[in-house]
Design a protein around this nucleic acid. Structure first.
Length: 121
DNA sequence: GTATTGACGCTTA
DNA sequence: GTAAGCGCCAATA
């Protein structure tokens, strides 16, 4: 790789030192269709398995609609985010179901079947 | 430089 | 078995 600049963040086009957010997007965009990843999983891929909360925050902070499949990111329990910003939790569930993700209808709590749809890096 | 926040995750009461 | 709180990491005010 090219030489490392002291303060790459000073440049907006720093490819070496991307913001945490962008790293999250990179991982989320790599999730294949029909699978879902958990916040902890993504955080682990980034290098900080404890930054799971920040992963979700990153998605909510810069939800590039059509670019970042936020609907493929779910809790470790399989539940969806409390405030999905795509049009409602029903919308997300439909999107995932349309991709082939299985859902477990536990009464009113609808969670993704991580047992089969959990994306593995 | 300190304090607060934040789509989570885990431990403890 | 259920409920609540704390902690982690990073960014922002």
């Amino acid at each position: 790789m090219s030489s490392i600049h002291t303060d790459a963040r000073d440049t907006d086009e720093s490819f070496f030192l991307k913001p945490f957010n962008e790293r999250v997007y990179d991982i989320v965009k790599r999730i294949p269709r029909g699978k879902v990843a958990t916040y902890g999983q993504i955080a682990a891929l980034i290098g900080s398995p404890r930054a799971s909360r920040f992963v979700g925050f990153a998605l909510h902070a810069n939800p590039e609609q059509g670019v970042i499949p936020c609907h493929r990111v779910v809790f470790k329990s399989g539940a969806l985010a409390p405030g999905f910003a795509f049009g409602g939790p029903d919308r997300q569930r439909k999107l995932l179901e349309d991709e082939g993700v299985r859902f477990i209808d536990s009464g009113e709590q609808v969670v993704v079947d991580l047992s089969q749809c959990r994306w593995k890096a």
